[in-house]
Design a binder for these strands. Structure first.
Length: 232
DNA sequence: GCGACAG
DNA sequence: ATCTTGTCGC
């Protein structure tokens, strides 16, 4: 398996990255309802890092939304070319994630990624960026609230509270996916509404706090990283 | 100006 | 994200 490098012209510093976000943010579509919940393919994507060697492993796992069983898996190994900067995660992860997605033979359908979409300092998180580059419907499910504060949602599965930006816009939701457990933070990425994103997230988090799609992708990219860097 | 801050 | 032992619980 060859090592994925960032494509020509990919930002190499913060200033370039900010300019790219400012350009691409205008192409986000958030007025489409998105795929129907519980039907068709759903693809989870995630990455794992080896900071010592500046290597990143990406995984894309396609699930059947009706049964939450695995349909297809793909991985890619890439070189990290961008530092971790909160708000610029996409520039670290996306080249390798795109390669993993591209190697799938089946339709990804709706893509679910770790992190945010609209709920981002410049309204253009990882999920939105991935959506614009691929044209696919994408939503983001994060495990931490990032820069946004939220009211504690009710304790029941499905209860939620708004993630509100300075201008009053509801950019995401803190969603309780299992009774009494810490909520996850959902936002729309591209070609899905926030309502739809939350409905999908809840459906996918049928058995655990985190959606099955991201659990599978997380396990797979860690395994892929071990296979290339874990030994020696 | 300083710290916080998705993964 | 990742570094890491034991421990509580199903």
């Amino acid at each position: 398996m060859e090592i994925v490098e960032a494509p020509p012209g990919w930002p190499v510093n913060e200033a370039e990255a900010l300019a790219v976000q400012d350009e691409l943010r205008t192409r986000v579509v958030l007025d489409e309802p998105g795929p129907q919940v519980g039907t068709g393919p759903v693809t989870g994507v995630d990455v794992a890092y080896d900071d010592e060697r500046d290597v990143v492993a990406a995984a894309a796992v396609v699930l059947d939304a009706a049964t939450l069983t695995v349909v297809e898996e793909a991985t890619a190994i890439g070189r990290v070319t961008f530092p971790y900067v909160p708000g610029l995660l996409a520039f670290r992860e996306l080249p390798t994630v795109l390669a993993a997605l591209a190697s799938l033979t089946s339709d990804p359908g709706l893509v679910v990624c770790d992190g945010y979409g609209r709920a981002h300092p410049r309204r253009f998180g990882l999920a939105s960026h991935l959506g614009v580059l691929t044209g696919l419907p994408v939503l983001g499910v994060a495990k931490n609230p990032f820069v946004f504060t939220y009211a504690e949602p009710g304790q029941s599965r499905g209860d939620f509270a708004a993630l509100v930006a300075d201008d009053g816009e509801e950019v995401g939701r803190a969603l309780r996916t299992q009774h009494g457990v810490k909520p996850v933070f959902v936002s729309a990425g591209h070609r899905v509404t926030l309502e739809s994103a939350c409905a999908h997230a809840l459906h996918l988090a049928r058995d655990f706090r985190v959606p099955e799609s991201t659990r599978r992708a997380d396990a797979l990219c860690r395994r892929a990283l071990r296979e290339v860097s874990g030994r020696a």
